[in-house]
Computed example of a mutant assay.
Amino acid sequence: MPKKLIQRFSPKPETLKAHPHLKYFGEILQNPNLWHLNRRSAAGAVAIGLFCAWMPIPFQMLLASLLAMFFCVNLPLSVALVWISNPITMPPLFYGAYRLGASILNEPIREFHFELSFHWLAHAIETIAPALLLGSFILGVISAASGYFMLRILWRINIANKWQRRNKK
């Protein structure tokens, strides 16, 4: 895997540990496993980041960082992967998740128009939220599992190729 590329774009642990908002975590951030990049920590971080990217909740990065700390996987990578669902990609991702959830629940696809009001939110929670949450959870689990195993396989292939090149010399 492009370990050096990931490390080049990842923030330095010292910078993050010194951040004023992250000082609340104290000793938890001192765990070296949160900053170490190996096959296990990277694959776990990919799984967490992809799963959290599908969650239709605010503060996805906070959820990803808490899960990364709980499972002791690479923190910067898990938080960075949450940005797969950004303001540009969120509408098609969550619409697809809603359609999947609606088809599983045998519900008709409802037309909805976003309004910034409490009335719209209450109505949306009753009508589209169950299908959206189910579809998001299913796609999150599928993405997390496929990302985890894909990274493990690619990492192993990369290591095998390095060994073959080393043995040829």
Rank of each mutant, 00 (worst) to 15 (best):
Y24F: 13
R152S: 06
K168L: 13
H19C: 09
L16I: 14
L77D: 05
Q7I: 11
P76V: 00
F118V: 07
M150V: 15
A80W: 12
R99Y: 13
I157M: 05
E107R: 10
W35S: 01
A42I: 07
P32T: 08
I138Y: 01
I125A: 12
Y98D: 04
F70R: 03
L93S: 02
R99I: 11
P11M: 04
N158Y: 12
N74Y: 04
G140E: 09
L100W: 05
Y148V: 06
S78R: 04
Q164L: 14
K12F: 05
L133V: 14
I109N: 00
A129E: 02
W83Y: 14
P76E: 04
I6Y: 14
L105M: 08
H36E: 13
W163I: 02
A102T: 14
E126K: 06
H113Q: 15
L151Q: 10
F71N: 03
N38C: 08
S10Y: 04
T15W: 15
V82Y: 06
F59G: 03
N158V: 00
L34D: 12
P56D: 01
A47R: 04
S146N: 07
F51E: 01
P130D: 00
P56W: 01
P58S: 05
V46G: 12
H119F: 03
T127H: 13
Q60M: 09
F112A: 14
L151C: 10
L93F: 10
I88A: 07
P58Y: 00
A160W: 09
M69W: 11
A129N: 02
I48N: 07
A124H: 07
S78Y: 10
I128H: 08
G140R: 04
L154E: 09
F149W: 10
L67F: 12
I157P: 00
G49M: 06
A80H: 11
L151W: 15
L62G: 15
L132K: 03
C72T: 08
A64Q: 05
F112R: 13
Y148F: 11
S143E: 01
P92I: 00
A160E: 14
L16M: 12
Y95S: 02
G44C: 11
N86Q: 09
R39E: 04
K3G: 10
F114H: 11
M55N: 09
L81G: 05
L34S: 02
L154C: 13
A129P: 05
A42C: 12
L34Q: 02
A145L: 15
M150W: 14
A68C: 10
L75I: 01
F94L: 09
L100C: 13
L134G: 01
A45E: 09
N167K: 12
W54Q: 04
A144Y: 02
K17F: 10
F70M: 00
T15C: 05
K162Y: 11
N31H: 13
L63G: 13
L77K: 01
L134H: 04
Y98W: 07
A64I: 01
V46N: 09
K12S: 14
T127C: 04
S103K: 10
L67I: 09
H19L: 03
P130W: 00
T89H: 02
K23H: 04
P13K: 08
L62F: 15
F94E: 03
I142L: 14
L5W: 15
F25E: 13
A43C: 13
F51T: 06
M1W: 01
N31L: 08
